[in-house]
């Protein structure tokens, strides 16, 4: 097997907080009837809940996020994604549903430090200060689509499309430069 290569191969920058590309991460898109029993059963078999609107639930090293009224995103280990995708697709066979491994189509970043919020505040029109723990916010990161959530007390995790990972890292690096803190 060839080694997985993430968009920026774990590149990081140290500013007033640390911004880093997280390296290979498993991401699975699940589309279908979120209120339906088949989806709930398929996820329950994996120990996962169907998150409420805009929520992201973390269970045993994996996360599952509500992306829109008919879409979820499951985040797991990169090497676990192919099997998990196949298992879920099998469980939902016959349903009007789609399970796709999008691990290599996305990039995942972490912003770590006491002022992590400020890095994102400069880049997004979303109200970061009022973003509660456990909620995922899909919005705009400067000129591209991105999603982020509070993955720890002083940490924000952010997802973008892989094709714009270099642009997003540039934004994060500039936004985190020492001396550019907002408050």
């Amino acid at each position: 097997m060839s080694e997985p290569v993430s968009a920026l191969q774990g590149k990081s920058h140290q500013g007033f907080v640390t911004v880093a590309e997280a390296g290979p991460t498993g991401m699975i898109t699940i589309r279908g009837d979120l209120a339906g029993k088949p989806l709930a059963r398929a996820l329950k078999a994996q120990g996962l809940p169907v998150p409420e609107a805009r929520r992201i639930e973390q269970v045993a090293g994996r996360s599952i996020a509500w992306m829109n009224p008919d879409e979820l995103l499951l985040i797991c280990a990169h090497d676990a994604a192919p099997d998990l995708t196949a298992t879920l697709a099998q469980a939902l066979a016959g349903e009007h549903a789609l399970v796709a491994n999008v691990s290599d189509a996305r990039a995942l970043f972490t912003i770590r430090g006491g002022k992590a919020d400020q890095v994102v505040m400069k880049l997004s029109p979303a109200d970061i200060a009022s973003l509660p723990m456990g909620e995922i916010r899909r919005t705009r990161i400067a000129q591209v689509a991105g999603s982020f959530w509070r993955s720890g007390p002083e940490e924000i995790t952010l997802i973008s499309f892989r094709s714009v990972a270099g642009y997003v890292m540039g934004l994060l690096e500039v936004s985190a430069r020492p001396g550019s803190e907002l408050f």
Partner: peptide, 12 residues
């Protein structure tokens, strides 16, 4: 009304 988020114009 689909996700309940209130956001400013540039997100739409």
């Amino acid at each position: 009304p689909c996700c309940g988020i209130t956001a400013e114009e540039t997100e739409f």
